[in-house]
């Protein structure tokens, strides 16, 4: 119940703020995020995002998946499945930006 509530709140909060903030990510920060995605997320999801201990994050694998749920998964993590929460390290905007990049496919 609490989860759904939180989900709602966040869904609402970034429907307002995502667009404006995402555009504010500097190219330097974007590069840092992509680096982190490849090398740190990559330690479980694979450098090429084809999966490892964690599931694949390729455009195919993410196709049709809901942005809010994906973003929540990254933000809060899935303790049962070894996914750590990235709250505190990544902002909501950064997470949404990263998921968009993943859905497009990360240049290798």
């Amino acid at each position: 119940m609490l989860r759904i509530f939180l989900l709602l709140i966040f869904a609402l909060s970034f429907s307002n703020s995502t667009k404006s903030h995402a555009e504010e990510l500097t190219s330097q920060r974007q590069a840092a995020l992509i680096h982190m995605l490849k090398h740190d997320c990559g330690s479980c999801h694979g450098l090429t995002m084809k999966g490892g201990l964690g599931p694949p994050l390729t455009p195919d694998a993410l196709a049709g998946k809901d942005m809010d749920i994906l973003s929540d998964t990254v933000f809060y993590g899935l303790p049962e499945r070894a996914m750590p929460p990235w709250e505190g390290m990544l902002s909501r905007e950064e997470i949404v930006w990263l998921i968009k990049q993943l859905k497009k496919g990360i240049p290798q």
């Binding site: 090398h39 450098l47 090429t48 490892g52």
Partner: peptide, 10 residues
């Protein structure tokens, strides 16, 4: 160096 070894992450 020796190259052409594919995805060597991990």
């Amino acid at each position: 160096g020796v190259k052409g070894l594919g995805d060597l992450s991990h």
